[in-house]
């Protein structure tokens, strides 16, 4: 008779013989953190918000329709007709705000603890990239419900980008995909929100975590090059 414990043990041994998974897990977990580096779990909570955004975002994308004719109605369907659709959209909206708040708090901790100093300058730059991408998520995601607030906030927001000297007109047209906020803007923002930004953010995130893992957390009580 098949014994589930023995089967799973056999399977694990089979994998372990080919790729040293246990050694990888051990190497990633068996590190230490300076007790004085009070992280307040800010970066980890930002990561958690990103996971929530990925999950709820995929769920929303299954029903959302990115055209000016149907976007608003598909949001109404999500909010009123689907089971827990209102909950998933509301969690997505709240988690977006929390993600930005925790990004900023995490940044403040790094500044006040001086954790960006040598040799961690690259981690800081990658982290700033993550912050900009997160703000990009907020800017593109805000248009998608295609209600009055979304439409006019995007109109004004892209207009502000148009005030940049010399390249302003080009930037505004580029962001809008045309002269005005239109169907082209909606599909453009949707594509950036669900394809470009998630891939870019996931890539930078892996780099950020790898650097932290390799260098360890900075000890705020010790000075650089300790």
């Amino acid at each position: 008779m098949l014994n589930p414990t023995r089967v799973s043990q056999g399977l694990l041994a089979w994998i372990e013989e080919r790729i040293p998974v246990q050694a990888w897990i051990a190497a990633s977990l068996h590190v230490t953190i300076p007790r004085s580096a009070h992280t307040f779990y800010l970066g980890g909570i930002t990561l958690f918000c990103f996971v929530v955004q990925g999950t709820t975002g995929i769920l929303l994308a299954l029903y959302y329709q990115p055209t000016p004719e149907t976007a608003y109605d598909s949001i109404l369907v999500i909010m009123n007709q689907l089971n827990f659709g209102w909950l998933i959209r509301s969690v997505h909206a709240w988690s977006a705000n929390l993600m930005i708040i925790f990004c900023i708090l995490h940044l403040l901790r790094i500044v006040l603890q001086g954790a960006y100093k040598k040799p961690r300058e690259i981690t800081w730059l990658v982290g700033m990239g993550l912050l900009f991408l997160t703000l990009g998520f907020g800017f593109t995601g805000y248009l998608l419900p295609w209600d009055q607030r979304a439409f006019w906030a995007t109109t004004v927001g892209t207009e502000i980008a148009g005030a940049v000297p010399f390249i302003g007109d080009f930037v505004r047209q580029f962001l809008r995909g045309g002269a005005d906020v239109s169907a082209a803007t909606l599909t453009r923002f949707f594509g950036v929100h669900v394809l470009v930004l998630p891939v870019a953010l996931a890539g930078l995130l892996v780099l950020h975590l790898l650097l932290i893992h390799q260098q360890g957390l900075a000890d705020p009580e010790g000075d650089e090059n300790e």
């Binding site: 007709q81 089971n83 827990f84 659709g85 998933i88």
Partner: peptide, 9 residues
């Protein structure tokens, strides 16, 4: 809730 949400209306 996720499974309930995935059920088509």
């Amino acid at each position: 809730p996720i499974i309930a949400y995935l059920i088509p209306r």
